[in-house]
């Protein structure tokens, strides 16, 4: 069955509040979370989703960390199709993610980066599938019975067909945007451009909303406005992940997060969720809860030189 045509968004002013953005995500949606690992993840929007009490989400993505771990802790997921969820060599395994997937509360449906890329490309091109040669011989083919094999009519070789993946909604945090919804991503865009083109709804938070003229003068990868449904000016919206050049990764806060998560689900709820998600009414209140301007200045200090930049990785949790 061919899928219906994809929407475009032409409203001239797409500025919304963070809560209005969160209200546009439904229970049980397939969600593509932008950014990756310790960088440019749409954390403020995810916290808003948790405050709203969303549940039943399926998440798709490449390499992620605290974003998916937090959604697991807040009970928002029913299935994870991520390729990686962890804290790398910094803090190791993702405790809330582990608890949710090991208990069966969240279905294990891991994917692989290129599989995801090809599935998104199929959706972007309006095609039902894309072929890959890889993955045959691994256990992913048993985990994903929806992948099909075919014999190539040109070469006779066996290929694996992966179906189009059209996320219901992409959540993206970018450095800059204008009120029409043009976005600029500086530094590695990870899979965000593919997410924006493949998803039915694109919700963006940005550090700064600027004029279209100012945006055009900037360096970076561009997401054209017609893919974007709505956006919100949300400074520090990726915290505690990095959003250079505005701020580096907050290792001190992540250490505190991970220490609480390692304890137990109950401890994480009282020590972290109640303090930084449910117990704060807005993103502005969150910024205050993490130390406001002092934290902002500490994380902007990466620009002061290599020694200052390096110091940010020596930060451990404050007691």
């Amino acid at each position: 069955m061919p899928s219906t045509s994809r929407p475009i968004y032409t409203e001239t002013n797409k500025r919304r509040s963070l809560d209005e953005l969160a209200a546009m995500v439904s229970n049980d949606a397939i969600v593509a979370v932008g950014g990756g690992l310790s960088s440019r993840e749409p954390m403020a929007l995810l916290r808003a989703l948790l405050r709203k009490g969303l549940s039943g989400l399926t998440v798709v993505g490449s390499a992620h960390g605290i974003d998916i771990d937090l959604l697991c802790a807040g009970g928002a997921l029913s299935r994870s199709c991520e390729s990686y969820v962890g804290f790398e060599q910094d803090f190791g395994l993702a405790p809330n993610y582990r608890r949710a997937l090991e208990s069966g509360a969240v279905e294990v449906n891991d994917s692989c980066c290129y599989t995801l890329v090809q599935q998104l490309r199929a959706a972007i091109q309006g095609l039902p599938f894309m072929p890959i040669r890889s993955l045959r011989g691994t256990s992913f083919t048993a985990l994903h019975p929806e992948y099909k094999r075919m014999t190539c009519p040109f070469t006779g070789e066996e290929l694996l067909l992966v179906p189009a993946l059209e996320p219901d909604v992409a959540l993206i945090h970018a450095q800059y945007g204008d009120e029409r919804g043009n976005l600029i991503i500086q530094g590695p865009p990870v899979a965000d451009l593919l997410f924006a083109r493949a998803s039915r709804v694109v919700l963006a938070t940005v550090e700064k909303i600027v004029s279209t003229e100012a945006l055009r003068a900037m360096q970076g990868a561009v997401i054209p406005y017609f893919y974007v449904t709505a956006l919100s000016g949300t400074p520090m919206g990726a915290h505690p992940t990095a959003c250079y050049p505005f701020y580096a990764y907050d290792r001190r806060h992540t250490a505190l997060y991970h220490a609480a998560a390692r304890e137990s689900a109950a401890d994480f709820k009282t020590q972290y969720l109640d303090a930084f998600v449910y117990g704060v009414s807005s993103h502005e209140a969150y910024i205050e809860s993490i130390g406001g301007d002092a934290t902002r200045a500490r994380l902007a200090s990466w620009a002061d030189g290599d020694d200052a930049w390096m110091r940010l990785y020596l930060d451990e949790a404050v007691a």
Binding site: E82, Y84, L93, L101, E102, C112, Y114, S134, F140
Partner: peptide, 14 residues
């Protein structure tokens, strides 16, 4: 549950 392989499943073949 281990963290997952990123793109390793694809790249181990390619």
């Amino acid at each position: 549950k281990l963290p997952g392989g990123g793109g390793g499943g694809n790249l181990s073949c390619d």
